[in-house]
Nucleic acid binder design. Structure first.
Length: 155
DNA sequence: GCCAACGTTGGC
DNA sequence: GCCAACGTTGGC
């Protein structure tokens, strides 16, 4: 079994790295995009490493590291009429949306801002820089290791 | 707040 | 199955 690497986006005023550091573990729910759903359902495995990215904030940046601790299962929020993630078209016996659980690993001492990432030739192929809207995206081993080596300095 | 990119919906 | 209209994401 090979370990894979991912980048998960989150808006820090909704749920940021400090929330995850405090909670230790979180359900990564509310993903309502089919491409992202397919990745969660088919490709994300326990033990995979996750770069935690803050979007829609200043500055946008990779801010920490997490690990997958539970692989894809039906997102309970899709069945909860009170949830903003409720989906009336999703059936219990044929769930449309999937979530995973992640655990906090580290908060980077030096977050790698999007502006900085764009300047690094080693990262020019990163999905983040190609297809910015995807909220769950693959990261290559080389990119992952480069990012940890370059910016991180775990705190 | 604006706008580009792109995903989704629905009429035909 | 195409495509126009519309909605959402997310950087700036």
């Amino acid at each position: 079994m090979t370990m894979s690497y991912w980048l998960f986006k989150s808006e820090p005023n909704e749920y940021g790295i400090d929330h995850l550091a405090k909670d230790k573990k979180a359900r990564w729910d509310g993903i309502r995009n089919y491409q992202a759903r397919n990745i969660l359902r088919d490709d994300v495995s326990v033990g995979d490493q996750v770069l935690f990215y803050h979007s829609s904030c200043k500055p946008t940046a990779i801010v920490g590291l997490a690990e997958v601790v539970a692989e894809g299962y039906p997102d309970p929020a899709q069945f909860n009429a009170d949830s903003p993630y409720f989906d009336a078209k999703s059936k219990i016996d044929a769930p449309r949306w999937v979530c995973v659980d992640i655990a906090f690993q580290a908060k980077f001492k030096n977050p790698l801002t999007l502006a900085a990432l764009k300047k690094m030739p080693e990262l020019s192929e990163m999905v983040l820089l190609q297809q910015s809207r995807l909220s769950i995206q693959p990261v290559t081993k080389a990119e992952f290791e480069f990012i940890l080596r370059t910016g991180a300095g775990k705190s």
